[in-house]
Design a binder for these strands. Structure first.
Lengths: 185, 185
DNA sequence: ATAAGCATGTAAGGAGTTACATGATTCT
DNA sequence: AGAATCATGTAACTCCTTACATGCTTAT
């Protein structure tokens, strides 16, 4: 296997929502799952090749023409359900902003403020893009059957972004105090 | 270089708070930074070897005895400040729970409920461990100079955990409705 | 016609985990 | 004496990213 189960899950899952080309799978994963999942370019095509070889997906065109969209076969859907039923692998967290804040004494209060401010701006951008995603979800009839589940993931992003904004505002206030006491000393 | 800058930052940072052995660095990263950072075992010792070779850290014992604690040299502290000043690298998100919920139509509402419930339980455990971390931070005089910055990262965890709990409760209510409509059809 | 975007892939290399391996120290 | 924990390291392997490479289709 050149690709992991995790990649297979994401690719098969994307095709379970609508048939599409590899190129479109890449865009869907980036644009729709991007807030909580990522696949690099070099993983998606090998994964599609694996899945096609194993009979789990097939091109919709009878001749299997290049650039015809892939769709899951019945065996592919069954495999997807098995993959989804496995427990999620805990991902190793790597939050560079919090790492820097933890060592903020070395970095200095002003640089920390810039990091927190950036976090706040990113969270607000995230909220805006989730607002757009909600509108698109409501408008796209193809997604109807999946929409209630997709909304749960959008809600998760919204809660997370609101929490980031609330934290950032508190942290900025604290950092102003710290900066004052640092410059006083 | 066998280890990345990222690992060097975390290891040097840990030593900037208090001198310690490699073994202790590993435990500190797991126990203290664990909520937002991870380093695997096989990264930490090579990183320490790199840093020692480059004169950025040294064993406190004059003979450099095995098992004497490491501390950053002045050059090491300067290097740490440079590393911290670099912009954080965006980490590749991989949230297996949200991926599964996104494809919840294939997984089924009951399995989704179990995933969300597990998320809620983990967030509550996280809150409890942050409560303990706050108490330890207040009690440990060695950490006094870093404490205000460390508190910011604890607060980030708390906001995030509260958001996860609020989301999970909403999502569980929604999933009960979905399960009813699925069993009705 | 030509530029932009669609579509598909490969290869080299870096990052990170796991399992393995060893020995010292401390507690009971 | 034996068990648990402290302490240090290596090697194989998997996973993933990045850069490279190619050709087609569609709009201007």
């Amino acid at each position: 296997m050149t690709s992991s189960d995790q990649t297979h899950t994401a690719v098969l899952g994307a095709l379970s929502i609508a048939p599409m080309t590899g190129y479109a799978v890449r865009e869907q994963i980036r644009d729709t799952l991007g807030a909580f999942w990522s696949e690099s370019f070099g993983q998606i095509y090998p994964a599609l090749a694996d899945l096609e070889r194993e009979g789990l997906i097939a091109r919709l065109d009878a001749q299997g023409a290049r650039s015809a969209p892939f769709a899951p076969t019945p065996a592919g859907l069954a495999h997807l359900r098995e993959l989804l039923a496995e427990p999620p692998k805990p991902s190793r967290p790597r939050n560079g902003t919090l790492l820097r804040l933890f060592f903020g004494r070395q970095l200095g209060a002003d640089a920390c403020r810039a990091l927190v401010e950036q976090t706040r701006v990113q969270a607000e951008a995230q909220l805006e893009s989730l607002r757009v995603a909600r509108a698109e979800l409501a408008a796209d009839a193809d997604l109807h059957d999946d929409a209630r589940y997709i909304e749960l993931t959008i809600a998760a992003g919204e809660h997370s972004a609101h929490a980031a904004i609330a934290w950032a505002e508190e942290a900025l206030a604290t950092l102003i105090e710290i900066a004052e006491s640092e410059s006083a000393s």
